[in-house]
Design a protein around this nucleic acid. Structure first.
Ligand SMILES: [Zn+2]
Ligand SMILES: [Zn+2]
Ligand SMILES: [Zn+2]
Ligand SMILES: [Zn+2]
Lengths: 143, 143
DNA sequence: TACTCTGTTGGTAATCATTATCAGGCCGGT
DNA sequence: ACCGGCCTGATAATGATTACCAACAGAGTA
């Protein structure tokens, strides 16, 4: 039998492209889209296919190595995350993308309590804070 | 000069289609997509164009009469809301769409305090709770 | 009521992100 | 080196949303 066949996902084969995507994602600061990562890699002269970028970002997300969020116009953004799968949220600068990881113990409690209160079960939540970081709010005092 | 020209938006002309979309949205319980509302109207034999449905849902959202949220796969959902533009969130059943309006005083405070703490300004937040309502969790104990 | 001025409508084409396909290439174990 | 199967990536397909724009219909006005 080859590798992990028992009950878990078949071991992910390590490839050049997989490394490229992960590295490129790690290189940047904030959340970025698959299209962006693809463009960045191509700009660096790396040879990767768009499909492959999508695939690896998806894998990273599934593995809990990357966090995702949706822009208002339905575009998925990814970001490599250091918290190793632990549940958390983000405070993101809508201008430069700088991101602060948030661990809101209280909010989690609030959410689950509220759910129970209304008879809901199996509830998960989406919480994202989007604003301007200190640097960016100085640079552009108003729109 | 005709109608409201001063400083506000030119008066919205009242049309048959506008009423249809609003009514159809009001008829349902939970959040629905533009495509769905369009299909429902057509199923009832009403003559409306897809573009028009999109337009009116957008208008309702802009006016604060309807709330919106994004499904995981980038589809916008709309729901007519009674809270008259007051800021709030939702606890939605992912199965039947039943929705409970949430007014989380504490969470609002938490969010703004957290933002300030990290030097962020002009912060808005997205909070959605998605689960199974009591009825649906009984009906389908597991997937 | 007839007329005119605009905002509105809606079929269709265009966008655009994401996914499905699938033949050919590469990884890993033997 | 050999093989079987996962991985890759160009391309087509999908699906929601938007752009277009000529025909249409509210709402004042005479
Ligand atoms: Zn994170
Ligand atoms: Zn910033
Ligand atoms: Zn609401
Ligand atoms: Zn339900």
């Amino acid at each position: 039998m080859t590798g992990t066949v028992g009950g878990r996902r078949r071991r992910q084969r390590s490839t050049r492209q997989g490394g490229l995507v992960r590295d490129q994602l790690a290189a940047g600061e904030g959340f970025r889209s698959a299209q962006t990562v693809f463009a960045e890699l191509r700009a660096k002269g790396e040879e990767v296919g768009l499909s492959t970028v999508y695939r690896h970002l998806q894998v990273l997300a599934d593995e809990g190595q990357a966090d995702t969020l949706q822009t208002g116009d339905g575009e998925a953004l990814y970001r490599l995350c250091g918290t190793d799968g632990k549940h958390h949220h983000h405070l993101v600068c809508r201008n430069c993308g700088r991101t602060v990881e948030i661990e809101g113990r209280g909010v989690e409690r609030w959410a689950s309590q509220l759910a129970e209160e209304h008879g809901f079960s199996d509830v998960n939540h989406t919480i994202e804070l989007l604003g301007l970081c200190s640097d960016c709010s100085q640079t552009r005092p108003r729109d």
